[in-house]
Design a protein around this nucleic acid. Structure first.
Length: 212
DNA sequence: ACATTAAGTGATT
DNA sequence: AATCACTTAATGT
């Protein structure tokens, strides 16, 4: 891992050469494939993942097996929930799944913790991560509580498209339905409607967002 | 060719 | 909007 890669992705700590040296020295680069489960429900977290490239999906799962999308984690981001787990020694309340092939920089719990005291830049970085994730969470709560399904669906697709940086999304209607916690049929019907409105184009396992 | 999975649809609640 | 039942279409083996 080259220092410059870290500097580019995490501007908050880019001036702290000392910290970056430590990051490279003590942290592991890990590569994952699409659909790999990085953190499972109930796991003990022993590292904090910094996303170098790719995309993670953070999901909350209910007892009945239903899942709910909390937010996406793109490159330059990190999972606030994993910090919580580290700090409080609790088991994971969430699940992290690779939405595409993903590279992580894994910060061992010990260092993530002790750097909070030794590096201002690290502490600020963590606080920023918390802030951004909390904001993302409030945003999704708003949508779950107040938005109509068609708005949720559109936002979901647009969000995913921005995060992945493509207009061509490879996913099934079932996937979307599970992320949004609704039935597959309603998604299919809504997508059909959006297609006729020329908002998008449907294919098998593929949705293409059309420029408006 | 057959099985499996994805998607479309109408009816019912 | 959910569930069900069923059809059609695409894909995998």
């Amino acid at each position: 891992m080259r220092p410059q890669v870290i500097k580019d992705l995490f501007p908050e700590i880019s001036n702290d050469d000392e910290l970056i040296k430590e990051l490279i020295e003590h942290c592991k680069v890990q590569k994952f494939k699409k659909d790999d489960v990085i953190i499972d429900y109930g796991d003990n977290i022993e590292f904090v993942p910094l996303v170098i490239s790719g995309l993670l999906k953070i999901i909350r799962q209910g007892e009945d097996g239903k899942e709910l999308l909390l937010y996406f984690l793109g490159s330059g981001m990190s999972c606030a929930a994993s910090f919580s787990c580290c700090m409080t020694q609790k088991r994971s309340e969430i699940m992290a799944v690779c939405e595409e092939d993903t590279t992580l920089l894994s910060v061992p719990l010990f260092y993530a913790n002790s750097w909070m005291g030794t590096y201002d830049s690290w502490r600020n970085f963590i606080i920023n991560i918390y802030d951004s994730r909390l904001f993302a969470l409030i945003d999704t709560i708003d949508r779950i509580a107040f938005a109509k399904l068609d708005e949720k669906l559109l936002h979901y697709l647009e969000d995913l498209s921005t995060q992945k940086a493509t207009d061509k999304l490879s996913l099934s209607h079932l996937q979307i339905a599970q992320d949004l916690n609704v039935s597959r049929e309603s998604i299919s019907r809504l997508l059909k409607k959006l297609e006729s409105q020329k908002v998008l184009q449907l294919g098998r396992n593929e949705i293409t967002l059309l420029p408006q």
